[in-house]
Design a protein around this nucleic acid. Structure first.
Lengths: 350, 350
DNA sequence: CTGAAAGCGCTTACAG
DNA sequence: CTGAAAGCGCTTACAG
């Protein structure tokens, strides 16, 4: 950080006090048109810009927001970050990005760098607000230390978290919708005549997985279809998980005829496994991705998938945070009702 | 930003001056063991942490780095961001992420928010250093206003840019390697007996595209193979671009027998198009992705691709920036020699 | 080893 | 409408 023009120089050159310069810059307080013009000229000449550190010290704000995510490689999170950064920038805020590398398994094995540490760090940074997406908040069982750290954070600054609502913590919790899409997808597959519908991907102990699983079972029962535990294969959210899950579902004594994939990664891995068994999608196995990551029209086969409107979620979250910071009215919650986009992979009626 | 415990409280409670508290916290200057212990105790009790704004004002550093990218949705950039954030965090720096939405076409049509504006913003934020990846720097023709803005930025703080070297600008430029991989890929396809090798994807006027194109033509000529302009179809880097490019290459009077795809998106789109022509990869068309985004082993067909070691690049870039900031020796340049990972899509000898 | 004081660059009552 | 002065929370010569 090099030495820059300061308000003192500008004041001197303009022949006024720093107070006046400050006034014309902030637009607060009365300034005569002439003085104003003169100061503005000098400001322009030097390309002067107030030091945000000094401003922040007085104003108690940094015009900086923290965003904490477990992973940036996952399209869900990168979409979130993209939209949020853009909206924040338009509102003249910057985003400090924190990537915790949290995974349910690393957590169990006692990951070294914890999300709690990041909470503290972001608190120390004196940001004006924080968005937390995913991580431990998605666990069915949230640790006490996490709750304590989140509470401490939320008591100090506005925070909105995307994930389950934790009681007695002064955050805004924005809940994602996990059930409706599952109901739509299972019913659709059933309407096509499938009786053995597999569930592939997701991590046990994670809310999104468990609640989808529960819905899946409930709808299956309602419909009088098979609900063997064998029909379910969960491990994680990535390509190999889809591959292994599909493999398992195909090797059953009574194999599945349809698979619900947690997301596009799982679906792509599953397609690979299905091909390795010399079977095809959708002729032998129907497939639906429950979380669209890309335009399924360009995959082979064209992937039937659930659009969950991550952009709307992202926009809502940043607007909500901004409203908390500025003390304005909270925005209307967005329509997050998922859309089933029927393409080829789900096939036709059996 | 709420009111916090300050150094004054800590000093009072410890019965020493703020200077002493500052000394024990920073470890600079001599402090008697007893005083030190007492102060540390109080610090711990209050969970005190110096206000970084106040510190930054004096120390002229913010322990914050800027990272400017055009797009976070592209796996290349999200990988870069992931690695860089992690390394920065380990070195106790935070990352302010700036996403400019730059594309070559938006640029031509005169995009409203420019990268230059972001340069100014990040300068105003008083970050300690900046990493710039992609954007206008990847254009064959860089505008004067961009150069001027970059020069201004680089004169103020350390900046490393991933992209072509611009003369007379005091940045560290880290160049990516575009030719070698192309040579390997073209030669491999030729060795398999292909004579009509298409080139799909990429944006005209962008360095990575143009230099690969040049290499592609040079190798083809060297080998005495067809170099019709018709064999090339460029537009952009995403799924639809791969789809359209492959379509065009298949509709030629003398269609291609092999396609070089700029990256996995292009390859996936191309596979979709090839299937729509009732052709298959690799039986009818051989395919290589020149920029691996995911594990090609899980795609159908398994995708032969070039691994370009983005992680190594990312690590080098952040280390380089840190060395500039700290005035230490620059790290050794990484081995960015691309590896051709031969899987199914490139097929066997004709 | 320790403290009083100046100062980083700004903003905002408070006078005038 | 404008300026002198205090103060945001910290660090660092400078004395002692």
């Amino acid at each position: 950080m090099s030495r820059n023009v300061t308000i003192v120089e500008i004041a001197k050159e303009s022949g006024v006090s720093t107070a006046t310069v400050s006034r014309v810059l902030s637009g607060s307080g009365p300034v005569s048109p002439k003085t104003k013009a003169r100061v503005e000229e000098v400001v322009r000449k030097y390309g002067y810009c107030p030091n945000p550190l000094a401003q922040g010290l007085i104003l108690r704000q940094s015009r900086t927001l923290g965003m904490i995510i477990p992973n940036i490689t996952n399209p869900y999170f990168s979409t979130l970050v993209g939209i949020i950064e853009r909206a924040a920038h338009e509102a003249h805020y910057s985003i400090i990005l924190c990537i915790t590398s949290f995974t349910a398994t690393s957590h169990k094995s006692g990951g070294q760098e914890t999300e709690e540490d990041y909470f503290q760090m972001i608190l120390d940074k004196k940001v004006d607000g924080v968005i937390i997406a995913g991580g431990q908040i998605d666990l069915c069982e949230v640790s006490d230390s996490y709750k304590a750290a989140l509470e401490k954070l939320a008591k100090a600054i506005p925070v909105v978290v995307i994930g389950q609502t934790l009681p007695d913590i002064p955050c805004c919790f924005v809940n994602k919708e996990h059930e409706k899409g599952m109901v739509i997808a299972v019913r659709y597959l059933a309407s096509l005549g499938h009786c053995r519908i597999g569930f592939a991907g997701g991590e046990p102990g994670i809310i999104i997985t468990e609640s989808r699983l529960q819905t899946y079972r409930a709808v299956l029962e309602q419909l009088g279809l098979d609900t063997d535990p064998d029909l379910v294969s969960v491990s994680d959210y990535y390509l190999p998980d889809g591959y292994n899950a599909a493999k398992k579902l195909l090797e059953l004594d009574r194999p599945v005829t349809a698979i619900l994939a947690m997301n596009d990664n799982i679906a792509i891995g599953a397609i690979r496994a299905i091909s390795d068994y010399f079977l095809s999608v959708p002729d032998d196995i129907a497939l639906i991705s429950c979380d669209q990551f890309m335009d399924g029209n360009f995959l082979t086969p064209r992937l039937t998938s659930l659009e969950r409107h991550t952009e709307r979620l992202a926009l809502h979250v940043i607007r909500l945070l901004l409203s908390m910071i500025q003390g304005t009215q909270a925005p209307e919650p967005p329509d997050l009702y998922p859309d089933l986009i029927i393409r080829e992979s789900s096939g036709k009626h059996l």
